[in-house]
Write a protein that binds this DNA or RNA. Structure first.
Length: 500
RNA sequence: GAUCGAGUAGCUCAGUAGGUAGAGCAUCUCCCUUUUAAGGAGAGGGUCCUGGGUUCGAGCCCCAGCUCGAUCACCA
């Protein structure tokens, strides 16, 4: 391992600090009594404050210096005068420790008095300086000028994601994205809890990866000597809880899908699923738009936000279009009553690739995906999906070829998915068997049969509506981020080569 | 998995028909008691992603690989 010049200098400084009898990593608590933000918000001339944070810049002018102290809430300027912090003859603390041995990135604690500088900046006149933690690796230096232009931003996406801790320290606005993320989730939690629904936890390791169509990650349990799958969804477990007698259950779930990665997909991602007894999908549409409108208002103070070049309004009510009408509108093709052959022929003559494993439902889904999806920029509920594509969804009350399902599209992407849940155990068994046939035809996304889930349904599940919403995508909309990696602290990356 | 683009100092980036590797910030030394992206003066710092090839000579050209990004495929 070879160290850069700057790293060697810092390690040498560390040793010199120790030689002076100062512990660079003290154990004792530091009695912080304020933050940079609070100190400024409640500023009173000469008020004593005790602050701690990282040293982010220094302007040394002989016997006096200015520096920036950064804590979790922001930055504040500190003024350090040699004779203020070194009252006696010994000026080591200023001349040696502060000026020579401390570096940008070091954690220090200061006790001092608030004052306003000549130029009018609220600052702390330091009386006591304490080394709290020495940093031996130099941080990138990012500066912002008076006009708000950022100089030398730390921009390499690879480094930003691999070393998110650095990104959070030096890049303005990164922390805010994650604060917004938590705020989105808390707003949803509050909304559900107000209605009396119960937050629950269900298994991540599942013997049968059910509830969605996707390729799972597989692992192995040694004691049981059996394969286990990381969940691709938690739907079937939450429904079991509805069978068990809860009126409403929800879970913020990490799901795992062994598929490609791009700017809207990460192998592990967060979905909120909620199931409410005695409701149907019409109720769930009202509920969903109310929830999303509240989230948008909480984050932006208004029910709309900018996403890329689009202004998106989450004000209720959202547009509602049946899948049949959506296809008719964007292609002029009426899928009503068409046979599998007719659909296939239409696809082929309209530039949609199909293969022999595609059934009727999949063909319709392809048409929608190719021709319609991208047009729904403003929040739109697409309703009444073909039965074959929705094996866990109740048959439509007016049309046996359709289901009571909706998906919410925003900016041309699916954001949420919901059903009037299928609670007829005989029908559910038949649907699973249909899936099995698809699987045998070569559809590797077809669902597995979960016998225990069927058993639960046989005991009886009340009419129920369920909804799942992609939290990462919702946060992307709320923070105007085009990449999922920007809303995940630690997005999946290939392992990096060992540095040493 | 496919195509295209990128990889040079701690960070952001230049780089010449192929001919001794550059700037700003950061770092180090000296001077300075109210400065705020950058006070002044000077100095040090590089496996130019890795490995091959072409060439008298490669950061630059060619081949292979690695990592990241964009687009596509699969999907949410």
């Amino acid at each position: 391992m070879s160290l850069s010049e700057q790293e060697q200098v810092r390690r040498e400084s560390l040793n010199q600090i120790k030689d002076l009898g100062i512990n660079p990593y003290p154990a004792a608590l530091f009695p912080v009594n304020s933050t940079s933000k609070e100190a400024k918000d409640t500023f009173e001339e000469d008020k004593e404050v005790i602050l701690a944070g990282r040293l982010m810049s220094r302007r040394i002018m002989g016997k006096a210096s200015f520096a920036e102290l950064k804590d979790s809430k922001g930055k504040i300027q500190i003024y350090i005068n040699r004779d203020e912090i070194c009252q006696g003859e010994d000026k080591t603390l200023y001349n040696t420790v502060f000026k020579k041995l401390l570096d940008i990135g070091d954690f220090i604690g200061v006790k001092g008095n608030l004052f306003t500088t000549k130029v009018g900046e609220q600052s702390v006149k330091v009386k006591e300086l304490t080394v709290l933690s020495k940093s031996i690796r130099p941080l990138p230096i990012v500066k912002t000028d008076e006009e708000g232009n950022v100089h030398d931003a730390f921009t390499d996406p690879e480094l930003r994601y691999r070393q998110r801790y650095v990104d959070l320290i030096v890049n303005e606005g990164v922390k805010e994205v994650f604060l917004a993320r938590t705020k989105v989730m808390n707003t949803m939690r509050d909304f559900f809890n107000e209605k009396g629904y119960l937050e629950v936890e269900t298994p991540i390791l599942q013997p049968i990866p059910g509830g969605a169509a996707a390729r799972p990650f597989i692992t192995h349990h040694n004691t049981l000597d059996m394969p286990l799958y990381l969940r691709i969804a938690n739907e079937l477990y939450l429904k079991r809880l509805i069978v068990g007698g809860f009126d409403g259950v929800y879970e913020f779930a990490k799901d795992f899908r062994n598929e490609g990665m791009d700017r809207t997909h990460n192998p592990e991602f967060t979905v909120m699923e909620i199931y409410v007894a005695y409701k149907d999908y019409n109720w769930m549409m009202d509920f969903t738009e109310e929830m999303i409108e509240r989230v948008a208002k909480t984050i932006h103070g208004k029910p709309s936000c900018t996403f890329g070049k689009n202004e998106i309004s989450f004000a209720r009510p959202f547009k509602r279009v049946t899948m049949t009408d959506a296809i008719k509108e964007h292609t002029g093709f009426d899928i009503t009553g068409k046979t599998e052959e007719e659909l296939k022929t239409w696809c082929k003559s309209n530039g949609i690739e199909v293969d022999d494993t595609f059934g009727k439902g999949k063909l319709i889904d392809e048409i929608f995906g190719e021709k319609c999806e991208q047009h729904y920029i403003q929040p739109t509920f697409i309703t009444d999906y073909p039965k074959e594509m929705s094996p866990l969804c109740k048959e439509h009350r007016d049309n046996p070829e359709l289901t009571e399902r909706f998906e919410l599209f925003v900016n041309g992407k699916e954001l949420a998915n919901a059903y009037s849940e299928l609670n007829d155990p005989i029908d559910q068994r038949e649907r699973f068997e249909e899936q099995l046939k698809l699987s045998e035809k070569g559809d590797d996304e077809a669902m597995f049969i979960d016998q225990d889930f069927l058993r639960a349904l046989e005991y009886g599940m009340p009419p129920t509506s369920g909804m799942g919403i992609g939290i990462d995508r919702l946060v992307m909309f709320m923070t105007n981020k085009q990449s999922i990696q920007e809303v995940l602290f630690f997005p999946q990356m290939r392992p990096e080569k060992q540095e040493s």
